[in-house]
Amino acid sequence: MAKLRGTGIAAVNYPTGMNLGGDPSQALIHATTTGTFVISLSSTDLGQGLKTVIAQIGAETLGVPFENVLIDTADTDTGPHCMGTFASRATHRVGNAVIMAAKEARKAMLEVAAEELEVSPDDLDTDGKGNIFVKGSPERKIDITSLALAAHFKYGRTISGRGMYIKPKSPVDPETGKMDPDSTEAHACVVAEVEVDTETGEVTVISLKSAYEVGRQVNPALVHGQIVGGAFMGMSHALYETTAPYYPSPDHAPGSFSEYIIPGPHELPHIESVVLEYPSVNGPYGVKGVGEMTANAPIPAIVNAVSNAIGVRLTEYPITPEKILRALEKSPKVKQLAENRS
């Protein structure tokens, strides 16, 4: 029995969004009488944190505090259309729609402030703390509650905005496959270190170290959450998960968490990452996307690391202990170990 160590790398791209039939999302923004800004959507938060990052993007563009922005989603009677949360598209598409809506609402807000402060809207700016002030003389200002009240009850003006973003449809050329299927590309490189038990065929992932480039990070803690959670799911795919353990045979289909094998906290490897930011031209504040790709790169990195450890190239996943034991029968490294012993 021996424990063989190996290292593997994988470098990947991941496209943001889709375009099959066009890929649109919309946003509507309005201010209440007291200066709370409601962003109405029909978008879904799967847990990645969409409701949080969209509020950040909205607050940034409006120039108002994060706390003054509410996200109202998802209701088809009140929220305008969104294609949905998939294809690493939500922050990119919905974020762009919110920026467009917020710019229109901001313009209306500054116009009302200009009347109240008796200056041109071009002379005004927001401090992000709830005030609109005259550039160069920050003491001349109005808070957004007073401003919204004035808009409603004095001027009869709405402070609102409409936003829409679409990646237009690009039909695929059936002869050549020419197409424009996405908006931008995020990138990652993952290095996996593994240990293989030659007696049991079990693999321990010691570490997954990665560099990601995702355009702008709207919320670094949430990006980190995707990287760690994705690394774990990628490891799970690489080593454990299948609904057809003897594919293509349909037998032994799991029906519970005791039969469908997903690793638990004991299998958590050391995960470390750095994030680079090269903003994309078409994303909101340069956002690309990070939701899906984090589970992709760890799979080949781990499989390459196991191949490196045992000296036999593996070409499928999941690489279960059974498959590894069969591969070990062909391993020059194991042969060498046996010869050394005898």
Partner: peptide, 18 residues
């Protein structure tokens, strides 16, 4: 290969960082 020009490449940068 699908005749789209690369415009947001950072593969080399993430490999160097990793």
């Amino acid at each position: 290969p699908h005749q789209k020009v690369v415009e947001d490449a950072t593969l080399i940068e993430v490999m160097k960082a990793a």
